[in-house]
Design a protein around this nucleic acid. Sequence first.
DNA 1: CACAATACTAAGCAATTGCTTAGCTTAATA
DNA 2: TATTAAGCTAAGCAATTGCTTAGTATTGTG
Lengths: 187, 187
Amino acid sequence: MARKKQYIEQEVLEKAMSLFWRNGYENTSVRMLEKEMGINQFSIYASFGSKQGVFLESINTYKKKIHSITHKLEKTQNGVAGIKQYFYDFLEFSEENNVCKGCLITNTVNELGQNADPMLMTELTKFANDIKQLFKKNLKQDSKKDMETIESESNYLMTSILGISVASKIFNKKQLEDAIETAFKNL
Amino acid sequence: MARKKQYIEQEVLEKAMSLFWRNGYENTSVRMLEKEMGINQFSIYASFGSKQGVFLESINTYKKKIHSITHKLEKTQNGVAGIKQYFYDFLEFSEENNVCKGCLITNTVNELGQNADPMLMTELTKFANDIKQLFKKNLKQDSKKDMETIESESNYLMTSILGISVASKIFNKKQLEDAIETAFKNL
DNA sequence: CACAATACTAAGCAATTGCTTAGCTTAATA
DNA sequence: TATTAAGCTAAGCAATTGCTTAGTATTGTG
């Protein structure tokens, strides 16, 4: 009985995600979203309710996108080597047109910090924690580390990947590889 | 012959810096600066020219403030141990009311990225490079590392401190200590 | 005291923000 | 083919943005 949507929500979300990823939440206006997504503001609000709504769905889209490499990590059986590979995979993942955008989740945590909507913040820290659990799983595969060591090293790995995410915006490839190689020397 | 300023520029800059540090550049409006600095917009523009001008001076104020710990690092003769101490000093430095604000420079790089004013970006990367040089200096004190190793390890240390800076916003003290302790095990 | 140079107050500027709405097209069903 | 529920266009909303300006207050000097 009714007219059909002239866009596919997942498709325009990909574009919205890309824009948020490049510019951050506050530096992305609804007008910019209009242009990037190629649809009118009315359609944006009809589909996603608010700018925050678009952002939340963009986060979900990001999660799906990064799932290819988190899934790979989830399936590895080779301990620390698998985690190291994840670091390299992440770098490749975050690169676009030779420009590193870091991690959308990390960027957002860093931008909004404690000013962020609590629900959003919960969502973001949950993601971070899931990654940490994957690190732990792989660390356990590596022989005789005790619980305490595994906890410490997973915290270390989390700050390392956060560091890589930020550094990727100003460091060149060689410097990032230096960082990764050295980071894994003592694990 | 003329009326006197009713505020001290360095004093109001301290307050501006604190606000930018907490909220980032874009999330800080001139009205917010007015309130925090306790002076009228006219005075802000008379003293600093623009919002960006206030920010640039805030960065300088930040540098002066952090100089107490970079200076300490500059003077240390105890190699890696001195760098590790710097990490702990930084954590203490970035804490305010039990809330970690990270590093103003790192936050800004992360927020503005390649969208930033080139002059500002140059300023920020220069600061990062100065820290890296201090790391190198201390690494050289530690015996028989070759040039290549020192370069690699200084890149590693830079990403580590960046990671600590970001992680400090979501990790608790124990987790951050885990990260630092593990980070220095292989140096 | 009067002058002149600067600072302060507060109102107001155009532009942009997130969001809404009135009026139209579109398309599947009866 | 007429109806009707939904989507689209584009104009417009109040609030906020960075910044300016007109008018007034304060000061040291002649």
